[in-house]
Design a protein around this nucleic acid. Structure first.
Lengths: 214, 214
DNA sequence: AAAAATATGTCAATGAATTAGCAGAAAATG
DNA sequence: CATTTTCTGCTAATTCATTGACATATTTTT
């Protein structure tokens, strides 16, 4: 299983495959062909085969793919066979929502700390984790082998906090602040720009109204 | 300004242009060239010009682009010159977080209702909006000219709720549930699959570890 | 007011991603 | 156990997206 230069287009589709395969597995489905999966997921069968072949091919001619095996393999590719400890910076509603997701835990993402600069939130508990003041963040990262920091703070401050995170050994940032973070080579950033997403929706509403005549 | 068959790749970049132009405007910058903008945003100048030209061209040779004008025009393309009323289905932390974002209001997205099936949450207020029971959803949509429904409920139930929304005249769904919604032609769906995003991050962490030798 | 510099819009070239097609391996059938 | 069917892995073709190059319009400089 060699992985070199897999495009982000492919990576971006893997979680969706993983989700569908997990559901099939739970339904007791043992095997599936690219054809069947393509109908279910509404993508071409060719794309499915091509995507999987990036990682060496998990199927067998005349049989198809074994659901359980394929599920496991994609999980491995996505790194879900390891555990990743994460902390949340910003204990507002969004931070609390993400801290509360039990599904993340199931995939090996362990919620281990939460920080906020607002004294009113410090001390509050989210799923057994006590919100700590921002001053304690650096030490906590160094002492607790934290991989991922989730940034759920307003954009003012996000750049500065990101820098502090990186300086203390964070490998990855899941960024919900509405700014682009510039981090050194080797630090992974995945941004979720909610307002961008909403604007895309807005565009498509408008487009449809225009195309179908006001 | 003719728009036909603009690719989603282009649309996906518009909100980011809009964000940068808004910041430049606030800083008092009057004009900018594709070259300068490309350095700021870390994309090629050619792509910027190509993207804008999909909509007819907003610049002038020898001058560049007027920041204020370009900002306005992209806003119009994204439909931000109109107002859209939205409701939130699911008054958990995520729903509350989205209801609380003042920035959406600034862009013309008006938070007008919130619903939850949990009686413990009904009656609670989020930014002046009272959480109503699910049973009142249909009538509210019909009587209040609601464009967008934000789905912040668990995946069980999301498909059924989506159907109810569509049957009562919703045009667009901003979907945070971890399922793919199948809606009729003409209904817009924009999904934010948070766990997919986290898995991509996980993949990239792993990849880097492997490439740089364990 | 002429010359030099700037910077767009557009076309062409390249590169990336998706889809189509098919040889051949395995499974199912009779 | 031979024949037919199924279905992958792979290569080739096609489509889509990005980048490069340049003619030309506008601005700035001298």
């Amino acid at each position: 299983m060699e992985e070199k230069g897999i495009s982000q287009a492919v990576i971006g589709r893997l979680p969706r495959y993983f989700r569908y395969l997990g559901e099939l597995k739970d339904e007791g489905v043992e095997r599936i062909s690219s054809q069947e999966l393509s109908e279910l997921m509404k993508v071409t069968a060719s794309q499915i085969r091509q995507d999987f072949n990036n990682f060496g091919g998990f199927g067998q001619q005349g049989y198809g793919y074994n659901v359980e095996y394929l599920y496991q393999e994609i999980g491995k590719i996505l790194g879900l066979d390891r555990t990743h400890r994460f902390i949340i910076i910003g204990a507002g509603n969004l931070g609390q929502a993400l801290g509360g997701y039990l599904n993340f835990e199931r995939r090996g993402f362990i919620f281990s700390g939460m920080f906020d600069k607002n004294p009113a939130l410090v001390g509050k508990e989210v799923r057994g984790i006590r919100v700590q003041p921002m001053e304690e963040m650096e030490q906590f990262i160094r002492e607790n082998d934290v991989d991922i920091a989730v940034l759920t703070i307003p954009k003012t401050g996000a750049v500065e906090v990101a820098e502090r995170l990186v300086n203390n050994g964070i490998r990855a940032i899941w960024n919900f602040a509405h700014v682009d973070l510039n981090v050194p080579e080797g630090i992974q950033v995945e941004s979720v720009h909610l307002s961008d997403s909403l604007m895309k929706l807005s565009y498509n509403i408008n487009r449809y109204l225009q195309e179908s005549g006001q």
